[in-house]
């Protein structure tokens, strides 16, 4: 893929910095929401085929919970906040104080879904606000949509626009998690997938567009 080969180290670092700033702000928001310490891992900029993209979250058939939104405006793209169904239960248990919510089998409880939706809303909003402030690019996110299904079915939705141009995705992947892992670990991935035309605009906005 020619475009990716042309990316300079400096530009790749810039994309990592975007993950840093966005997910850092989201981690702070989650930390306040749950009143727990949340850390962020160093963001990774991944260049992956569509099949490899699914492997990043455990394969196309793995069941995941996803909050997905489309970014419109000057730098369009797709954004996901992805976590496991077990994680979803922990979120709901923590916020409601009620341990009976289960996402093991449908039908899923409405109240639980509503809470997850709101968490997704807050986190993706925090990510994008930070990103928009940093780049001074106007971003208009759609209302986030929640789905619990196979990773392949979910993530391919975010690949549609870029698939018109390429067979690879550039993914800014940042994991946030609780320090000192145990079973109750809070852990989730942010995927930011800018549409192909957005990279140039992001680089230009940050003054790193010179090859």
């Amino acid at each position: 893929m020619s475009f990716i080969e042309k990316l300079s180290t400096y530009q790749l670092d810039t994309l990592k910095e975007i993950g840093n700033i966005g997910a850092g702000n989201a981690a702070t928001a989650l930390s306040k929401l749950l009143n727990r310490k949340i850390d962020m891992q160093t963001p990774a900029v991944r260049i992956a085929s569509f099949d490899e993209t699914m492997e990043l979250v455990g394969g196309a058939e793995k069941v995941i919970v996803s909050v997905f939104l489309r970014i419109e405006g000057e730098a369009p793209g797709s954004m996901f906040y992805l976590f496991s169904p077990e994680q979803a239960e922990q979120f709901v248990h923590h916020i409601t104080g009620n341990d009976e919510f289960s996402f093991a089998n449908p039908p899923y409880p409405d109240m639980g879904l509503s809470i997850l939706h709101e968490i997704g809303n807050i986190l993706s909003g925090s990510y994008l606000t930070a990103l928009s402030d940093f780049t001074k690019i106007n971003m208009q996110p759609s209302v986030p949509s929640l789905s619990m299904d196979m990773a392949g079915a979910i993530i391919s939705e975010g690949l549609m626009e870029l698939s018109r141009e390429s067979d690879h995705a550039i993914i800014i992947d940042t994991m946030i998690q609780e320090p000192e892992s145990d079973k109750e670990d809070i852990e989730g991935h942010f995927f930011l997938l800018p549409d192909p035309e957005s990279f140039e605009r992001i680089f230009k906005a940050l003054g790193v567009n010179d090859q």
Binding site: G59, D149, M150, G152, A153, I154, S156, E157
Partner: peptide, 9 residues
């Protein structure tokens, strides 16, 4: 023949 995780595909 098998394919996994069809969404809108």
């Amino acid at each position: 023949l098998r394919t996994t995780g069809l969404g809108s595909c």
